[in-house]
Computed example of a mutant assay.
Amino acid sequence: MPVHIDETTHRCTLTGADLRLETAGSDIEIVTDEQLRMSVAVAAGQRVPVTEAEADALTVAGAKDARKHLKASVPGSMI
């Protein structure tokens, strides 16, 4: 799991490939990466892909939620 949240202080640790970033939850923005088709946590100019559960937990810790819903453009898609 690339995300650890201290529930008392709302300090978050994001871990990615060759990256370990510790910051306040309020300094994180959760965005949708259309290429990856998943959520990404952005802090200090660094991007870490996260699961939807991790993205939700980060928003509870104070992260800004800037995710958007993606729609399939293929006719007959379930989305």
Rank of each mutant, 00 (worst) to 15 (best):
residue 41 A to Y: 06
residue 65 D to L: 12
residue 10 H to K: 15
residue 50 V to M: 00
residue 45 G to M: 02
residue 44 A to M: 11
residue 37 R to K: 04
residue 48 V to D: 02
residue 37 R to Q: 04
residue 16 G to I: 06
residue 74 V to Y: 11
residue 11 R to F: 14
residue 62 G to M: 06
residue 64 K to S: 08
residue 45 G to A: 04
residue 58 L to Y: 07
residue 2 P to W: 08
residue 2 P to H: 09
residue 60 V to M: 03
residue 15 T to M: 13
residue 45 G to C: 02
residue 32 T to I: 00
residue 19 L to I: 14
residue 76 G to V: 09
residue 48 V to F: 01
residue 8 T to A: 14
residue 2 P to C: 04
residue 2 P to V: 10
residue 69 H to V: 15
residue 39 S to Y: 11
residue 70 L to Y: 12
residue 14 L to H: 07
residue 71 K to A: 15
residue 4 H to A: 11
residue 63 A to G: 00
residue 40 V to D: 00
residue 35 Q to S: 09
residue 35 Q to M: 09
residue 73 S to Q: 14
residue 26 S to D: 13
residue 37 R to S: 03
residue 18 D to W: 14
residue 20 R to D: 03
residue 70 L to A: 09
residue 43 A to Q: 07
residue 43 A to N: 06
residue 26 S to Q: 12
residue 66 A to T: 06
residue 42 V to W: 03
residue 68 K to D: 13
residue 75 P to G: 07
residue 8 T to E: 14
residue 23 T to S: 04
residue 27 D to I: 08
residue 78 M to K: 11
residue 51 T to N: 00
residue 10 H to F: 15
residue 33 D to L: 00
residue 33 D to W: 02
residue 8 T to P: 05
residue 9 T to Y: 01
residue 26 S to C: 08
residue 64 K to R: 13
residue 76 G to Y: 11
residue 72 A to F: 15
residue 43 A to F: 08
residue 7 E to M: 13
residue 63 A to S: 04
residue 59 T to P: 03
residue 30 I to Y: 02
residue 29 E to H: 13
residue 65 D to W: 11
residue 64 K to H: 10
residue 72 A to S: 15
residue 79 I to N: 10
residue 42 V to M: 05
residue 44 A to E: 12
residue 29 E to W: 07
residue 55 A to W: 03
residue 28 I to F: 06
residue 16 G to D: 03
residue 48 V to T: 02
residue 59 T to E: 04
residue 71 K to R: 14
residue 7 E to Y: 14
residue 65 D to P: 03
residue 69 H to R: 15
residue 6 D to T: 04
residue 8 T to G: 13
residue 34 E to S: 04
residue 4 H to D: 13
residue 30 I to D: 00
residue 67 R to H: 04
residue 26 S to G: 10
residue 6 D to P: 01
residue 55 A to G: 01
residue 73 S to M: 15
residue 5 I to C: 03
residue 56 D to I: 07
residue 19 L to H: 12
residue 12 C to F: 12
residue 7 E to N: 09
residue 63 A to V: 05
residue 6 D to H: 06
